[in-house]
Simulated scan of single mutants.
Amino acid sequence: MTVSAAQRKSFPLVTAHTGCMETLDNTLESVRRGIELGADVIEEDVRVTRDGVAVLAHDDLWPAVGGEQIRISQMDFAELRKLEVEVDHAGKKGIISFRTLEEMLEIIKPSGKIANLDLKTDEAINAAAAVVDKLGMLEQVFLSGCEVDRAREAEQRQPKLRKLLNADVKLFTSIPYEQAVSQTCQDALETSCFGINIYHEFITPALLERAQALELPVYAWTVNDTKLMELYADMGVASITARNVEALVGLRMKRRQT
């Protein structure tokens, strides 16, 4: 593929995956690190406690320090905030306490960055919207974690919140690729999503051409290899999500200097 000088100087949005660099996932340290490194977008996972508080977490079930198994969805936040849990994920181990979405957005707001809220349950739609509304951050937030059913729910419950359609991996592995592309674009339009969030290995020029023709930017996740970052940047994706934010920001700086 031939890449023009203009394409090389333009660059996708840099999205810091939760747990970027050496931080633990779903921590305020991760949020701050992404901002410090120069990411445009900060991604964190969102779940909801029994009493409706939006918290940063990927899973519902956690091993608390001391051996007890706890479920976020079955606890009030006042109980949850007293606990520490053990983390063993993405090659990193540690102990964390749960932080709220509100705490995250209070850090994001003055930075001018964008928050990508990866919803893990339908209940997180209204809980996230309440925090966004409270802080007046409608223009600084969008939702991900929305496959077609959740995207429809989000559109019905909170139509003011922008959202990406999460491309269904099963769709791309069960039917011909062209059909999967067509269905994904159709689903994004029908659910009023502003773009498509897709695992990077399913991205091809054909997908990008179809999506761009429909004014649906394509967000690629999760890319940590520098050569792949270069590949997808040259292909014209709108955003690259990475844990290795330092390498991605470095590539952006290099491109802008040439």
Score class of each variant (00 low, 15 high):
Gln179Met: 11
Ile198His: 07
Leu61Thr: 15
Asn244Glu: 05
Leu56Met: 12
Ala154Trp: 09
Arg255Glu: 00
Ser73Pro: 08
Asp118Ile: 05
Thr23Lys: 02
Arg81Ile: 12
Pro159Leu: 05
Leu208Ile: 02
Ile125Ser: 12
Asp40Leu: 01
Gln74Glu: 14
Leu214Asp: 14
Leu80Gly: 06
Ser97Leu: 07
Ala238Thr: 13
Tyr177Trp: 03
Val181Lys: 01
Met1Ile: 04
Phe98Thr: 02
Gly34Ala: 04
Asp225Asn: 10
Asp118Cys: 03
Tyr199Gln: 11
Thr18Glu: 11
Glu201Gln: 14
Leu208Trp: 04
Asp122Val: 15
Ala90Ser: 10
Ala151Gln: 09
Gly19Lys: 04
Ser73Phe: 07
Gln69Arg: 15
Glu29Ile: 09
Met229Gln: 10
Asp149Ser: 13
Gly112Leu: 03
Asp122Glu: 15
Cys185Ile: 12
Ala233His: 05
Ser97Tyr: 09
Leu171Lys: 01
Met253Pro: 15
Asp118Trp: 08
Ile196Asn: 01
Lys9Asp: 02
Met1Gln: 08
His17Glu: 05
Glu123Leu: 13
Ile95Met: 05
Cys20Tyr: 00
Ala242Arg: 02
Pro12Lys: 00
Ala127Ile: 10
Val245Arg: 00
Leu231Pro: 07
Glu178Asn: 10
Thr226Ser: 15
Gly236Tyr: 01
Asn26Ser: 06
Val65Phe: 07
Val85Ile: 04
Thr258Ala: 15
Val48His: 04
Ile42Phe: 01
Ala127Lys: 05
Glu106Asp: 08
Glu155Ser: 13
Arg150Leu: 11
Asp225Ser: 10
Gly34Thr: 03
Val65Ile: 13
Val3Asp: 01
